[in-house]
Design a protein around this nucleic acid. Structure first.
Lengths: 192, 192, 192, 192
DNA sequence: AATGAATGAGAGTTCATTCAT
DNA sequence: CATGAATGAACTCTCATTCAT
């Protein structure tokens, strides 16, 4: 392992331990000392990699895999399998651990910047969905009773709701089942 | 205003200012000093009313009006109007303010006791819903493809999801619209 | 019980509870609130009787019954029975409780005024003893190897030592036995 | 001075200043701020070395040099010179300063753990003395009127009594004289 | 005389951050 | 680049004391 790799490894170790601890105790209650201790580095090392404690948050994976979403707009075909595929893809980027999901949420809510950024991402998600939904409506695949924008809103809400609900320890055993189920019902409701 | 009333007023003032500040800055970032300053009392006064900072949280209204829910089990009639009525009743106990809703969530997530209590409440909500849903299925009002428990799970998730989504500043202008919309789609999906 | 008596009773109740608590937790660790709570009065009442917390200390019985001591100088006869009588008399004014004795000491040491006053009292005790001892030496009752002042010093030290030692839970079961024993040996050492 | 030495120096400086201040104002009345101010370090530094304020006490020298005492049991010869030697050895470990002695006592009394530990040490001291005294009685060096245990009790009491008495500013100028004098009389009383 | 809500200075303690080594 | 001792602002919480009732 050369110097560059070692640095990346240290950085990642810190991030991983940080999220672990955030999941256990919450963002505010977690101290830099705890993080470095678990990561096996000195306290000062933390500040060689991050300007301040808040900055680790920005490196945490959020619930929204922006890249996956943006790919959606170039895809074609019936909306339902498309959405299923997208959801599965997004879930692949999430931790398969309830408290980690919840911790991500807690961090997001406890930090103005992060909350803002999450809101923006949701909004982007929605903007990508709208034309896809509108097209599906035009093709008669789903009901046109509601405007596409409203449906997009409900879809995003549905996605987020499933995540938090599951993160709280409720619902199906596997997150993917919880999300799948939610969207099954969702699309049934949208049947034309 | 006599002594007893004054006491109650002081206590309420502290609670109100606390929630306000939690909504602005989050629970952890809010200091007791800020709370008392805004409430116009001395710092020590806070601790005459609450054993510690954490305890104010317990006086905060959560998203679940347990009493309203438990009434549900004694009611009769078609499930959809019943649920609509329940939802409206529950919303009446919530603050009509996005950041207050979000702050409630943040507080819940930042405090183990509160999180536990919220989870329990959701579970109770679910348990009340299950027989109501099962009965509606028996009467053929809603689809029996999914077991009642699963539907109950999705209903609670839907409720919570709408609240958070709206709390983040997304969706409809009015919370009640957001919730109504969500459940409209939800019940459409459940059509037999 | 008339008004005046009631006042005295309240005052005494406060003093008693205070010493009790001092014995349990020490002077500094005892709060006025604890005292008034145990005494069954309101916090404010404490300050109707004492200017401040420190002042209760002054009302506490110390280890030295000054009055008894001063009587000594007018008494006559062989020194050993005289001293025995004095000691027994002094013990009668002490609490028969190890932790109360120890608490008295702790209070004395934790308060400059009280320490000063205790030192003065010991000095007075010594001054009363000196002529008595000198007279006994002149009568040949006790050894003249040591000057009277030195003997007086050792006597007072002996008295205090027995009290503290017993207060710590060590030595004889009964305080009077511990003191008697100490002085028995003391006087044996002083045999001419 | 390297890093490790500097650490030890800082720690010792804090301990020294703490005891100084305890001697001046007592344990409870001394604040961590005062200690660090006098030691010339920041307030936080105190807590890098001690978990809390109470912990400095544990580093304070008590009145009983346990090691010296335990050596006693392996020594032989007439008891009186043996005891003289032991006492002198023990005094060598004590501060030659009245208020420091008194402060040690006050700290001991103001802290349950410390009091317990001091009582245990006194008890140990006694247990070491008992066989030594019994042997001396068997050899006819000292009177057998009192049981060895009782004599041990009085010896320990005598030692402690001399310390406190001298600590209060009374008695001989030098502590060693006060202790020597006390034990001279003590052993005279024990003459067979 | 008794009450107890209000006060606020000040206590112990925490912890993100710095910087000399 | 890693270290960890030092920092000090800021925190929660305590409590003797006051004073309107």
């Amino acid at each position: 392992m050369n110097r560059e790799e070692k640095k990346r490894a240290t950085r990642q170790k810190i991030i991983d331990c940080a999220l672990e601890l955030f999941a256990e105790n919450g963002y505010e209650a977690t101290t830099v000392h705890q993080i470095t201790e678990r990561a096996g580095v000195a306290k000062g090392t933390f500040f060689n990699y991050f300007e301040n404690k808040e900055e680790v948050l920005c490196d945490l994976q959020l619930f929204i895999a922006t890249e996956e979403i943006s790919k959606l707009q170039y895809k074609q075909g019936p909306i339902i399998p498309l959405m299923r595929e997208l959801l599965m893809e997004m879930l692949r980027h999430l931790p398969f651990n309830r408290s980690l999901i919840l911790a991500s949420f807690q961090c997001t809510l406890s930090n103005k910047k992060l909350l803002e950024s999450a809101t923006v991402k949701f909004e982007e998600f929605k903007q990508v969905l709208i034309p896809v939904i509108a097209a599906a409506q035009a093709r008669g695949e789903i009901s046109s009773v509601m405007p596409a924008e409203m449906i997009a809103d409900l879809a995003v809400q549905n996605y987020q709701g499933a995540l938090i609900y599951w993160g709280m320890g409720l619902g199906e055993d596997k997150l993917s089942n919880q999300v799948t189920l939610s969207f099954e019902l969702f699309f049934k409701g949208l049947a034309p």
